[in-house]
Amino acid sequence: MSHATAIQGTVAEGFERVREEFAAVAADEADPGAQLAVYLHGRQVVDLWAGDGVSGSSLHALFSSGKGAAHLVVALLVQDGVLDLDATVASYWPEFAAEGKGELTLRDLLAHRAGLIGVDGGFSTAELADDRLIARRLATQRPYWRPGTAYGYHAFVIGALTGEVVRRVTGRSLQQVYEERVRAPYGLDFHLGLPEALEPRYVPVRPLPARDRAAAGAGAPAPDSLTGIAFNLNAAEPTDLADFANTRAVRALGPSSSGSVGNARGLARMYAAVISEVDGRAPLLRPDTLAEFTRPHGGGGVDLVTGERDHFLLGFEAQGVRYPFLGPDAFGHSGAVGAQSFADPRSGVAYGYTRRRFSLGGGGGAAENHRLAAAVLRAATDRP
């Protein structure tokens, strides 16, 4: 049942309809708690939030949103000539060649084509919190399909795999490179490794109510299915995402596949910096790099883990497939709690949305992103 919810924050002239849509979304939530931020051509035009205990600067668990930051780091290193997309992963990380993985290229790895979605017996929480521990186990793991022949979402592990390549070639962790080249220079409230001093701003994830959890559990995939393995349901203690995110060790280490923490402002500002001039700085990616990373790389067909079609560009999710009103090269990444973030080069929009409670139905960006993003695009493209 709808109810009045106080909406805080500001919108630029012409974006009033976005505020109305955000208010309508909040009114439909029994437990509102969300943020929405938007940049247009490098300038912030939307900064909204709602919910008791939530402010514009509150920090939320953003789960797979961190994959966007991880693949931005890889794109920067490719742009620098430090990484070659068509080199084999094993040329950077020799141990990776075990179990028939020696010919897999970095390009295929980034396109989720490695067949290395998890490990036999699953991961412990301590392993999932630490990208280096994940990488160590994956190096000797037999892939679940022949590398390069199909694609499937490497939900908990893609950041550890690409991160190990980054570490081998730079001597720095992916998290360190992100901090030095992206987060700190732009002052982003989007972290791969949350400092202790910022913990008071963290808003814990609230799980779905028991009735909704029971309904979701009834439709859960078999632990030994590809989906079950990818989401670590084959572990002795299957991963509970709310407990995982609310663990300080996870937030501190910032595993790039699953442990990012931030807010809508940080998400939107990062994607704005990729495609637009922000604070006098040139866009992070040159047009040729952007073109390479925003063309489809899934090879067509169905994602073996999620069942989605044409799911991936290069590392990033194909947001133009999910939201057809965006340009075909729109790119970004969702997060399990319902968070969504993307850049749309055609319109100049950069978008960030967060929630503190899992959305009913789980997975990816929550359903309300369709109406919110559509309102944003209408406002952006109707402007003179």
Rank of each mutant, 00 (worst) to 15 (best):
L304Q: 12
G121M: 12
L48W: 00
L83D: 03
A242I: 12
A272S: 10
A75M: 00
Q141H: 10
L116Y: 07
T140H: 15
M1F: 01
Q79S: 06
T5W: 12
L304N: 10
G42K: 02
S91L: 08
P324Q: 07
A282M: 07
D329R: 04
A111W: 01
G14Y: 03
G193K: 01
R346V: 13
A379V: 05
L326P: 15
A90R: 10
R136C: 14
V177P: 00
A236P: 06
R269S: 04
L314V: 06
E180M: 08
T149Y: 07
L304C: 14
I134F: 06
E99T: 03
S258M: 12
L241P: 02
S91E: 09
S258K: 06
G335H: 07
V177K: 03
A27M: 09
L377N: 04
F231C: 00
F316M: 10
R146Q: 15
G53D: 10
Q176K: 14
R322W: 03
Q44G: 05
D212I: 05
R371E: 05
N369Q: 12
H71Y: 12
H297T: 11
S258E: 11
R213P: 03
R211D: 13
L208D: 07
R281I: 13
L48E: 01
F190L: 07
V349M: 14
A70C: 09
Y323M: 12
A26N: 12
R281T: 14
R183H: 02
G361W: 02
G81Y: 06
A222T: 13
G118L: 00
A75S: 14
H311Y: 03
V261K: 00
K101E: 13
A50L: 09
V169I: 08
P296A: 09
T140R: 10
L48R: 08
R142A: 10
V119Q: 01
D120L: 13
R346M: 08
A90Q: 11
H333W: 15
A218S: 05
A184D: 14
D31H: 15
A366N: 04
